[in-house]
C-alpha cells in the first residue's frame, strides 16, 4: 500500500513540476466549450439546450488529449520496465498511474465545469448534477483510456490510434452523463442515469487495470 501511494505521489510530483499536461487539458476544455457560442451563435436558449452535451463532449476530448502520455514517458526512459519488475503488481501500477492522471487532469475539469455551464446559460438547477456526473464519469474516462494508452504504447502515431480505439468506448459514459443533466433540467430525477454511471465505474475499476496490465506486459517484453 505504501508503494502504491508512493507511485501516485511520484506521478503527482512529476505532473506538478512539469506542469504542462495538467494545464493543457483544462485549457483545451475551456477553449473547446468557448468555441461553441461562436459557432452556433449567441442565442441563449440554444446554448442552454446544448450546454450539457457540449461540456461532456469537451471533457471527453480533453481527457483523451492527455491520456496518450500516460505510460509513454515511463516506457521511453525504462521506468516501466523497472516498475514491471517491482513487487508491486502491474494492475496496481496501472491503477496508481490512472488515479494520478485523474487527479491531475480530471479534477481541474470538474472545477472549471460550472463556470463553463454559466457561460453557456445552463439553468442553475443543473450545476449540481453536472459536477456529480463529471465526478463519477471522468474517472471512467481515465480508466478506459488507460487500456488504450497501454495498448498503443510503442506504436507510431499512437495518439490517433488511441482516439480511434477509445472514443467508441466513451459513448455510454457520454450518453448517461449528458442524460442525467438533461433529466435534471427537465424536472425529472437524474438518479437512474447516475446509477448507471456508477455501475460503469464499478465495472471499469477492476477491469481496466486488469486489461491495461496485460497490455503493458506485452509492451515491455
Amino acid at each position: 500500500m505504501t508503494r502504491f501511494l508512493r507511485l501516485i505521489g511520484r506521478d503527482l510530483r512529476l505532473a506538478l513540476r512539469q506542469g504542462s499536461d495538467a494545464s493543457i487539458a483544462v485549457m483545451f476544455f475551456v477553449l473547446c466549450v468557448v468555441l461553441f457560442p461562436f459557432g452556433v451563435g449567441p442565442e441563449p436558449n440554444i446554448l442552454a439546450r446544448i450546454a450539457a452535451g457540449v461540456i461532456w463532449v469537451a471533457a471527453l476530448l480533453a481527457s483523451l488529449l492527455s491520456l496518450e502520455r500516460l505510460f509513454q514517458n515511463d516506457y521511453e526512459d525504462g521506468s516501466l520496465e523497472l516498475l514491471s519488475l517491482s513487487t508491486l503488481p502491474m494492475e496496481a501500477v496501472v491503477l496508481a498511474k490512472t488515479l494520478a492522471h485523474w487527479l491531475v487532469t480530471g479534477l481541474p475539469l470538474i472545477a472549471a465545469a460550472p463556470l463553463l455551464a454559466l457561460l453557456l446559460n445552463m439553468d442553475a438547477e443543473g450545476f449540481g448534477v453536472l459536477v456529480l456526473t463529471l465526478l463519477v464519469g471522468t474517472p471512467i474516462l481515465s480508466l478506459i483510456g488507460s487500456i488504450g494508452a497501454a495498448l498503443t504504447l510503442g506504436a507510431r502515431r499512437g495518439g490517433v490510434l488511441l482516439s480511434l480505439l477509445i472514443l467508441p468506448l466513451y459513448i455510454p459514459v457520454l450518453i448517461f452523463g449528458a442524460g442525467a443533466i438533461d433529466a435534471a433540467l427537465n424536472g425529472l430525477t437524474p438518479r437512474p442515469h447516475l446509477l448507471l454511471l456508477g455501475g460503469l465505474l464499478a465495472g471499469a475499476l477492476p477491469l481496466a487495470p486488469w486489461a491495461g496490465a496485460a497490455a503493458l506486459r506485452q509492451a515491455v517484453e
Binding site: L7, L14, E76, D77, E81, L83
Partner: peptide, 21 residues
C-alpha cells in the same frame, strides 16, 4: 535505459525506487 526522471532530483529518483524495492 537509466530510468532517471528529469524533473526529480537524484535522491528523489533513488528513494522512489528504494521504496518500491
Amino acid at each position: 535505459l537509466d530510468a532517471v526522471k528529469p524533473v526529480l532530483s537524484a535522491v528523489e529518483n533513488l528513494s522512489f525506487w528504494a521504496t518500491l524495492g
